[in-house]
Write a protein that binds this DNA or RNA. Structure first.
Length: 676
DNA sequence: AAAAAAT
């Protein structure tokens, strides 16, 4: 019966869409003047006859329906009518079902809409396609979920009741009504969690389809419970839609959402997105509402909008001119370093200070530290975890010397990136979300859209891959009206590039961290210094972690032209920062590809991991100081190294990037005129 | 070798 209905619909797409929308159109009738009233909403760049007809047709229908149905007069004075800005108004004006409004106002405790919600919900309920530019952390998830849900309820009003007294599934796997595509698994989970909250008092079913989980289990849920709203990541969505045995289909899809659309355009995603769209009914077969959310609207997104959205779409721009975006509002500090090896000690210094200040400021320290590689996130996480209070060693139950961690146990230390299992990732995200205080070592998995409440600091280690990414990372703090601050740690050799990527942002140079200028070898003499603490923590780090971090740096800093300067900086990091006796070896193939085959300070070879070769004898602070004392000897004894370092600085290749330690004064001088 | 994302 339903099948037959669907076939009819397919034959009469225009009619079917009108039919499906008629419910909402009637309800919207009283608000039809919204469409005239939205002067601040710019129309899409495709003025066409279709759009005009589409538009006026809907208005006529709405007004006619209003006059026919309502006993009140259709509103005559458009300017008196304003956008709905409170959730309860959606009920009193019979736009959204009372069960859903009840969920919003009672269960979720919401009363006022945010700007993006006001603009998007009002528009989307009328069935328009939307491209919305909104800053992060403004409740845009709800902005698209609510119209999606209401449109589903309009088609089948019985779903507005929780169980309806019926048994068994309320829908099937082959009748998905809304598809939401997200660039990361965590974001998909977060959206699904919010969707599940929203549908609580209805019969609508939300499912997720993300990688890293058992495909069979997820599929079973979809098949057994059915699915109205499916939230997922590109790979898994493509997988289940293209699997003929899965029976997952969306012949009557009414909504398609691209969250973080600019991100979904990336190389790796795009073919999968296209494949998914190929597996969905075409817009001609089934009229659907498409919504795109994107913090920035670069060319690619404009093209996507042109090819995907219906003429007459609305461009909802929620970046108001009079309201400063997060990245203009949040204080941001830059620290430049003469050596990479100073960065983790400086991080420890900063965290220690902020943890101490937390109670004074009435807000516990909660930070995300962004690394440019997964290996570095693991390394830094391991170091922070291994920190020990200097001079507080006690014999533990097994007679070995251990010192307690210098930070309170309340400061949770967490790590998240794609190299962890999905279970670990989900767990870390969940723990950090609920943590009062903590430090999350993260790759860019969490950079976009993730909502961790009360993040006070976003610290970025190294030049972010792009300006957009910097802004997204920074957007994890200062959310929901709270304050926050950003920190950026840069080696001198990347400062110029960072400046060009981040031009125009209010970055302030900060010189308050002593570790940014300290001489590592001198600092090691003081066991209380963060440098010594980090070095001590290094001892328990598996060498494979160091190896991977070192190699990953070549990829992260691929864009650096001065390969020699980079090689030396990495050498210092490995030897002075990590206490290795020699740099890990680089496979010759990789070195050649990246232009390092004829560069000093890079050791070509394979398999550098003979057990214990990197760590010298002692196990105490004194001996690690001893190691660093011997470091000069080892260095000069290595072939092609040592003596020619002096001459090197006068050679042309190193000109503007002179960065060797031992002349910190000169270096700082060199870069100080370039203050951010 | 460098975020992410399917097994």
């Amino acid at each position: 019966m339903r099948r037959a209905f669907q076939r009819t619909q397919a034959q009469l797409p225009r009619f079917s869409s009108a039919l499906r929308r008629s419910g909402v159109s009637r309800q919207l009738a009283l608000q039809s003047d919204w469409l005239l009233d939205l002067k601040d909403i710019k129309q899409g760049s495709l003025p066409s006859a279709t759009r005009a007809i589409h538009h006026s047709l809907r208005l006529t229908q709405n007004i006619a329906a209003a006059k026919a149905e309502a006993n009140t007069d259709a509103p005559t004075n458009a300017s008196e009518k304003s956008l709905i800005t409170k959730f309860h108004e959606l009920e009193t004006q019979e736009i959204v079902h009372r069960n859903v409004v009840k969920t919003l106002t009672q269960d979720m405790g919401l009363s006022d809409m945010t700007e993006v919600q006001t603009k998007t919900i009002n528009q989307a309920l009328s069935g328009n396609d939307i491209i919305a530019q909104a800053k992060t952390g403004t409740g845009k998830t709800l902005a698209f979920l609510l119209p999606i849900l209401q449109n589903i309820l309009n088609v089948d009003p019985s779903l507005a009741q929780r169980s309806g007294g019926r048994r068994g599934p309320r829908t099937t796997a082959d009748d998905i009504r809304a598809l939401i595509i997200s660039p990361t698994r965590e974001l998909a989970e977060q959206i699904a969690a919010e969707a599940k909250k929203l549908v609580r008092n209805t019969g609508v079913i939300v499912q997720t389809a993300v990688g890293g989980t058992q495909k069979s289990a997820g599929l079973r849920n979809i098949q057994h419970q059915g699915c109205h709203i499916l939230v997922g990541t590109p790979g898994r969505l493509k997988d289940i839609f293209s699997d003929p045995r899965a029976g997952v289909q969306a012949p009557d899809l009414s909504a398609l959402v691209f969250d973080e659309a600019d991100r979904l355009l990336d190389q790796g995603f795009w073919p999968e997105i296209q494949e998914i769209m190929r597996l969905l009914p075409t817009p001609a077969e089934c009229d659907r509402q498409t919504m795109m959310f994107s913090a920035t609207v670069p060319r690619g997104v404009v093209d996507l909008v042109r090819s995907t959205l219906k003429p007459g779409f609305d461009f909802v721009r929620c970046v108001r001119d009079d309201e400063e975006p997060t990245h203009a509002r949040v204080p941001q500090k830059v620290v430049t370093f003469p050596g990479l090896e100073q960065q983790v000690p400086a991080l420890v210094e900063l965290c220690t200070r902020c943890i101490k200040e937390g109670p004074e400021k009435g807000r516990p320290f909660k930070a995300i530290v962004y690394c440019n590689s997964t290996a570095e996130a693991t390394l830094v996480s391991d170091i922070l975890r291994n920190l020990a209070t200097p001079g507080a060693e006690r014999n533990d139950a097994f007679g070995s010397l251990r010192a307690p961690h210098p930070w309170s146990r309340d400061v949770r230390l967490l790590e998240i990136h794609a190299k962890l299992s999905q279970a670990q990732r989900t767990q870390a995200a969940e723990s950090f979300r609920h943590a009062q205080s903590g430090i999350l070592l993260s790759s860019d998995v969490t950079a976009r859209g993730m909502d961790f409440p009360n993040v006070t600091h976003v610290i970025q280690m190294g030049t972010p891959p792009s300006r957009e990414q910097y802004i997204h990372r920074l957007g994890r703090t200062a959310r929901a009206g709270k304050e926050g601050e950003g920190w950026l740690f840069l080696h001198n050799f990347e400062a110029r590039e960072a400046r060009s990527r981040l031009g125009g942002l209010p970055l302030q140079k900060d010189e308050s961290l002593t570790c940014s200028t300290v001489n590592v070898e001198n600092a090691l003499k003081d066991p209380e210094s963060p440098v010594a603490m980090v070095r001590a923590a290094m001892k328990k780090i598996p060498k494979a972690t160091l190896h991977k971090s070192y190699l990953a740096m070549f990829g992260v800093y691929q864009w650096i032209r001065d390969k020699q300067a980079l090689a030396y900086a990495l050498q210092d990091l490995a030897i002075k920062g990590w206490g290795l006796t020699q740099t890990p070896s680089v496979p010759p193939g990789i070195a050649q590809r990246l232009g390092f085959s004829r560069v000093e300070g890079v050791r070509l070879g394979h398999d550098d991991l003979e057990p214990d070769s990197s760590f010298g004898g002692g196990s105490r602070g004194g001996s690690s100081y001893g190691r660093s004392g011997g470091f000069g000897d080892r260095r000069s004894s290595r072939s092609g190294f040592g003596d020619d370092r002096g001459p090197r600085s006068s050679r042309s290749y190193d000109g503007g990037n002179q960065h060797r330690q031992g002349r910190p004064g000169q270096q700082r001088g060199q870069y100080s005129h370039n203050a951010f």
